Simulated assay, not measured.
Amino acid sequence: MNEFDKDFLSDLEEAETKFSGWDFSFISDTGRMRSGLTSWSYGSMATSLKRNAEALLDMGTGGGEFLSKLSPFPETVFATEGYEPNLPIAKEKLEPLGVEVFTFEEDSDLPFDDNQFDLILNQHESYSPMEVRRILRKDGIFLTQQVGGLYCLGINAALGLSGNTEYQEWNLDTSVQELSVSGFEVLFRKEEFPVQRFFDIGALVYYLKAIPWQAPDFSIHEHKQMLYEIHQTIQSTGFFDVKQHRFVIKARAI
């Protein structure tokens, strides 16, 4: 076995490192994966809106990493999380801060009262426009940053896997149309395709383990040859690039 193959196998072995929540710091903070910037900052927008909010909901809080950094909070603040592995992580992080975390089964049936919130944040979480409108007060704000249906399909192509066709039409225009017919006025909208760059094959595998819905049929064993070919690309060019797909919408309940 040459050194090239040893690096490849070592990277795959390291990618088995335990993952929890949505904390990508294992590969992002070490510079093994870098995400291109959008022209907007969801965090800055959320921080600004939070200052004038009385009742805040964070939809799809993940492990609570983002919401915990918005402290101090408005008088009332709740979070939802529908992905079971994240629930104990989110509760451990957020409940000491006074944030109650709710689970749910259907986007169309959230455990909240009509007109309960004046600010709803949603970062990369699915939602029902009608249900969001139901729990949002008149003139309340819904801020969402979404992952579009074309997100990182270059990974799937390189592995010989099809993308999730159910979501490939999920984009800015579709979302704006749905919100507009559900009782919202769209105040701000933008859609971009920044680069996602991986600097070693272990970082890519780690990433795919963290978000298994990107390539549900992926396995290291079944796709080892394709991974090796991506590894060769990284060795020759220094990186493996794919395109993200993101859009952001700020809408007011009317």
Rank of each mutant, 00 (worst) to 15 (best):
S41M: 06
G98W: 00
T80F: 00
A46M: 02
E65T: 09
N86T: 00
S41T: 10
V101I: 06
D58A: 08
M59A: 13
S39C: 14
P85S: 03
K50R: 08
L56G: 09
T103Y: 00
I89M: 12
G62F: 08
F66A: 12
G60Y: 05
A53Q: 01
P88Y: 03
A79Q: 04
E75A: 14
T38K: 12
I27C: 05
S44W: 04
G98L: 00
T80K: 06
W40A: 04
G43N: 13
S39R: 14
L37V: 05
L49S: 05
D109P: 00
F73G: 05
S108P: 12
K93R: 15
V101L: 12
T103F: 04
P85N: 03
A55G: 12
P85Y: 02
E75Q: 13
T38N: 14
T80M: 00
D107E: 15
K69N: 10
G36N: 01
F104P: 11
L94H: 11
V99L: 09
T38C: 15
E54M: 10
A55N: 14
G98T: 08
L87I: 14
E106C: 04
A55P: 06
E105H: 12
A90S: 13
S25L: 10
A90P: 00
E100H: 13
S68A: 15
E100K: 14
G64S: 11
Y83H: 15
T76K: 15
K93D: 10
A53W: 06
E54A: 09
V101R: 02
P88F: 12
L56I: 02
P96F: 08
A55Q: 01
